[in-house]
């Protein structure tokens, strides 16, 4: 079983899973927050926030990657601070790949969660407030449990998008085996060398399997949660 893949292919697969999982988990709380602000918030800058979040969906990934490089590269205005203060950098590290994946997947994740929040009747939240629940408690005890299917859907979508991210990743952190070479960039590399087709095909098959498993898992979770919150 282990022999089915070369060490280099294994490296790319495991790195991809790690990058996508970290990107998804770290961005999820921000995703929920942003979705809540967009769905329920009425504040100046609402449109601007909406635009910022959706920008990576519309911009060419190369542009997003380059902007990340400008901001978070060793010489970038945020990257330089991080390096000076914490000795930490995203540049050409797997954490950078995770950042790129998270930024690219963020709009999809937020959209799914926002749809779920908009489906929650604000009247239920009003009822909770008359029962003595502050806004935070209302969110934790009423809104959050009711939007769980949406959060799961958003998380899976974000994970799948992160698994497939290519343009921004290769622009921001390049294609270093074992550090920043994820499945898509590995497939790309194999296709560049003569005789790499077989390895590329194996990775393609793995990509398909991972995507299908993620999809099935999210379907199953959503169904369970949906029956629970339908009140039956």
């Amino acid at each position: 079983m282990l022999d089915a893949l070369s060490p280099e292919e294994w490296l790319a697969l495991l790195l991809s899973l790690r990058v996508s999982l970290v990107a998804m988990l770290v961005s999820l709380p921000f995703g929920v927050l942003a979705a809540y602000a967009l769905a329920r918030g009425r504040f100046p800058g609402h449109g601007l926030l909406n635009g910022m979040i959706h920008l990576p969906l519309i911009l060419p990934p190369v542009v997003t990657g380059y902007l990340l490089l400008l901001a978070f590269g060793r010489q970038g205005w945020i990257g330089a601070l991080l390096w000076d203060w914490f000795g930490f950098t995203f540049a050409f590290r797997w954490t950078g790949a995770a950042l790129a994946a998270a930024v690219m997947a963020f709009p999809l994740m937020v959209r799914a969660i926002k749809l779920a929040i908009e489906a929650v009747d604000p009247k239920l939240e009003e009822a909770a407030s008359t029962l003595g629940a502050s806004r935070l408690v209302v969110f934790l005890t009423v809104t959050l449990p009711l939007i769980l299917p949406g959060i799961i859907a958003g998380a899976v979508l974000g994970f799948a998008k992160a698994m497939g991210e290519f343009g921004a990743t290769i622009t921001f952190v390049a294609n270093i085996p074992g550090e920043t070479q994820t499945l898509p960039t590995a497939i790309y590399s194999f296709l560049q060398v003569p005789g790499g087709d077989a390895a590329a095909l194996r990775l393609v098959a793995i990509s398909v399997v991972v995507a299908l498993v993620a999809l099935a898992l999210s379907e199953w979770l959503s169904r369970r949660v949906a029956t629970r919150i339908a009140g039956r």
Binding site: L124, E126, A127, S129, T130, S134, V142, P145, L146
Partner: peptide
């Protein structure tokens, strides 16, 4: 704010928490 008023409210639509 509403949650500090100690005022109970029965709505026309019961608004029970479905979960």
């Amino acid at each position: 704010p509403p949650h500090r008023r100690e005022v109970g409210y029965v709505f026309q639509d019961a608004r029970l928490f479905p979960h």
